[in-house]
């Protein structure tokens, strides 16, 4: 399992694109609704790579995700959020990969996979918070985080859906060499 040069460069590029989206999103002031609730637009990149096809494996997806969260934590300087980004993101990617694997006919809409991932992300984070806080009280935030996960999952899902529907030329560049 060696990482060829083009793949390595592209993985790095994806990680940086996700990082830029993350930073831009963090500069957009949104009303505070619940702890940890945000759009999560950087997941557009994760979702896009998941649906790119066989050339892009589980390893690439996790590599891009880990690089992005690590760099994001270094830039924002929030060490505690790193743990929650990891648990949430890990749950989300695992759920999305399982769904994609189960969907043999490849007809499952991207937004549905994305919503499932977003929900797994939020449930994972609340569970992690319960462990860290040694308290079940945090589960009171679950309903609003589920509602938020549906919205953000649909947004990122449709973003990726429309990219693949339009099928810009760079997708050929990314899937064949």
């Amino acid at each position: 399992m060696k990482l060829d040069t083009k793949k390595l460069a592209l993985n790095a590029l994806f990680a940086v694109i996700a990082l830029v989206i993350f930073i831009v999103e963090s500069q957009i002031p949104l009303p505070f609704l619940a702890p940890g609730l945000k759009l999560g637009l950087a997941n557009i990149v994760t979702l896009f790579v998941i649906f790119l096809g066989e050339k892009w494996t589980k390893r690439d997806i996790f590599l891009i995700f880990l690089t992005r969260t690590l760099l994001a934590a270094l830039i924002t300087g929030q060490a505690t959020s790193l743990f929650f980004s990891f648990t949430g993101g890990f749950f989300a990617i695992v759920v999305m990969l399982i769904l994609k694997k189960l969907d043999k006919s490849k007809t499952l809409p991207i937004p549905i996979v994305s919503v499932s991932g977003a929900l797994a992300h939020n449930v994972g984070q609340v569970a992690a918070a319960a462990v860290v806080m040694r308290s079940f009280a945090v589960f009171a935030y679950l309903p609003v985080l589920i509602a938020g996960g549906v919205i953000s999952g649909l947004l990122t899902g449709f973003a990726v859906h429309f990219i693949f529907k339009k099928r810009p030329k760079f997708i050929n560049f990314l899937t064949s060499w």
């Binding site: 702890p35 505690t80 929650f84 918070a129 860290v132 806080m133 308290s135 009280a137 945090v138 009171a140 935030y141």
Partner: peptide
């Protein structure tokens, strides 16, 4: 039902 949570300081107000 809904607490205030401060994760970095492990503080919770209920």
């Amino acid at each position: 039902i809904i607490p205030i949570i401060c994760i970095p300081n492990k503080l919770e107000i209920r």
